[in-house]
Amino acid sequence: MRNFGKYLIALAATCGLAAITGPAMADDLEFTLTNATSVSATEFYVSPANVDDWESNLLDGKYLPAGNEVTVTIGDGRRTCTYDLKTVFEDGRTAQNDGVDLCQTGKYTVHE
């Protein structure tokens, strides 16, 4: 029964992220975020490569469990494909990847 509870939390986290990002518009950028690590991601930031600060935490109180994926929609109205990505994990470690062309790949996988 304990594993079932984790599944519900994972599902809620996935649904929550999709709800946070809102409905897709013509200029929105959509990609699949996969957590290929052994720990849950507790924060995920996406900022255009030419912006000096991190924008909002897309997980915002939720988390993406290890081995799970979710569809992310960036509806910021910008016409850019190149983003800097930062993931913070429940154990405090971070992973950052700058200059990712999300239009070309359509996906982003976080690795340890």
Rank of each mutant, 00 (worst) to 15 (best):
S40T: 01
C103S: 04
T87G: 08
A13D: 06
H111R: 05
R93H: 06
D98V: 04
Y83K: 11
N57S: 06
A13T: 01
A12R: 03
T14C: 06
C81P: 00
Y83E: 13
D52Y: 02
T82M: 14
A18E: 00
Q96K: 15
A66K: 11
L85C: 01
G67S: 02
C81H: 12
D28Q: 13
G92L: 13
L85W: 03
Y7E: 08
V46R: 02
Y83G: 09
S47K: 12
V100R: 04
L58R: 00
M25F: 05
T37E: 12
D76S: 12
C81Q: 04
P65W: 07
G75A: 01
E90C: 13
A36S: 15
G5R: 09
V72H: 00
L33W: 15
D98E: 09
E43M: 15
L29P: 11
V100Y: 03
S56K: 09
D28T: 05
D91E: 10
F89R: 04
T105G: 10
V70P: 03
A18G: 07
D53T: 11
D28M: 03
A12Y: 12
T14V: 01
G77P: 08
V110M: 08
W54E: 14
A41Q: 11
L85F: 02
T34P: 03
L85Y: 06
T94S: 12
N97L: 00
D84K: 02
D84A: 14
P65N: 12
L33P: 09
N35Q: 10
T73M: 15
A10C: 10
N3V: 02
L102G: 06
F4P: 04
V70N: 10
N3C: 09
S38H: 11
T82E: 14
Y45V: 08
S38E: 10
K62N: 05
A95I: 09
N35K: 03
E69W: 09
P48T: 11
Y63D: 15
S56C: 11
A18F: 00
Y83H: 07
A26H: 14
G77I: 07
S38D: 06
